[in-house]
Structures are given as C-alpha cells and as structure tokens.
Design a binder for these strands. Structure first.
Length: 206
DNA sequence: TGTCCGATTGGT
DNA sequence: CCAATCGGACAG
C-alpha cells in the first residue's frame, strides 16, 4: 500500500513554517539492511541570507551548500566537527537558500537497526537512539551520499504523519549557534513538548 | 598554502 | 568544562 506523499509546494515556503509543520512527519530510510522510520520531534529553521546562523548567510554559495539554492524538498547533508553529519531539508523557492535541520526523531520502526548502526546495546532507551542531529544521522544511516537527494520519494524520504497539536509545540533559540550574534536568540527551534526523544534543553518536568 | 572554526558529542 | 578531528571557507 502506497503511503501518502508530501507535495513539492509544502516545502516551497519559508523555513519557519516548514519546520513547525514538519513535526510529526515520518523520516523513512529503506536500505538493504532494512527499513528505519522515525517521527520528527525536533527541528530548527535556517532562514537564508538574512540569518547569521545559516550556511547561506549573506548569499554565501559554495560547493558545500549548493543544494540549499536548489529545489525545495531535497536533502542538504553536511559534515561538521570532523566527525559528524547533519541532515537538513531544503525549503523556500529555487534560489532562496533556506533549510530545516532535523535534530531528533522518535523511532517507530527499525529500532534494532538503529541500535546496530550506533553500536549501542539494548539497554539504551528508544528515545535516546536518534536524539541529536548527528546521532539521528547515524541511527538513520544518513551520510554525504544523500546530499541532494529528493525527499518526496525514493529510499530516503519524508511522509506526512499525524501533525503534532499546536499546544504541544514549543519554540526556543537554536542550539550551537552562539556565533550568530542577535540571530542566536531567534526562537527558530521547534520541538514536541514532553517527548523524551527531544535533545538539548527542555522545560522541566510536570 | 596557511589558519581558523564549526547547525556535535561524550567523557571528566 | 573540554578534547576530538578534519573538511570547508577565506585571507593572502
């Protein structure tokens, strides 16, 4: 049975809108090892040339971030800190380099495979296996080979899921962008409140 | 070519 | 709090 797909138009909007509405969507990766599916629970918007935290700030355009300038709904994957990968989704229109960073997913299928990819044992909680942008990439088997792939269809793709209710969505400043001056404070990180698969600072209990 | 640094993580 | 670790960006 074919799952429902996103439309290209969904991604052809400003990154903040796309980010917020991506919460609850499914990230799917089918490989020879098996299938892995995660529910997106934490994202960050990178708002193009005007955003000091974005790789495309000031219309910076290099081989690395080239796909940010391409069509929306494609993957921009990059390598950082000499050891980690980050996975982002291109938004806005062609020529407007905005993107949404996926920081964490909650495993829905393929938890075993995720553990294996991360080299963890079964004592690890499901909520911890794909928490944090680089950990998410490892668990989902995402690397530079996926840079530029179309996420509307294909082995690595996004599928709509039950949207997270607005009352369960919180916003905060983005993580790891202290260098961005005033833009470091913009509330462009969105996450599902109370979901243990969310990384970084979260509101205290309740 | 040389230098600086990062959209992170995990251990102290 | 800080080291790990190396490709990318940019100055010269």
């Amino acid at each position: 049975m074919a799952s429902k797909l996103f439309s290209r138009e969904f991604f052809a909007r400003d990154a903040v809108c796309v980010a917020r509405e991506l919460l609850g969507a499914r990230l799917v990766h089918e490989t020879q090892e098996g299938i892995a599916v995660g529910k997106i629970v934490e994202v960050e918007a990178y708002c193009g040339p005007r955003d000091r935290a974005a790789h495309s700030f000031g219309w910076r355009r290099t081989p690395r971030n080239e796909v940010m300038y391409g069509p929306p709904g494609h993957a921009y994957v990059y390598f950082v800190y000499g050891r980690h990968h980050c996975f982002t989704i291109v938004g806005a229109d062609v020529g407007m380099p905005e993107a949404v960073l996926v920081r964490a997913v909650e495993p829905l299928q393929g938890f075993e495979l995720m553990l294996e990819r991360r080299g963890l044992d079964h004592a690890v909680a499901p909520s911890a296996v794909a928490r944090g942008p680089a950990n998410m990439c490892r668990a989902m088997g995402i690397d530079l080979r996926h840079n530029g792939v179309d996420l509307l269809r294909g082995p690595l793709r996004l599928e709509p899921g039950p949207p997270v209710p607005a009352v369960r969505i919180a916003a905060s400043p983005r993580i790891g962008v202290a260098y961005a001056g005033p833009d470091a404070l913009r509330p462009w990180r969105f996450y599902e409140v109370g979901n243990p698969a969310v990384s970084g600072p979260r509101p205290r209990g309740r």
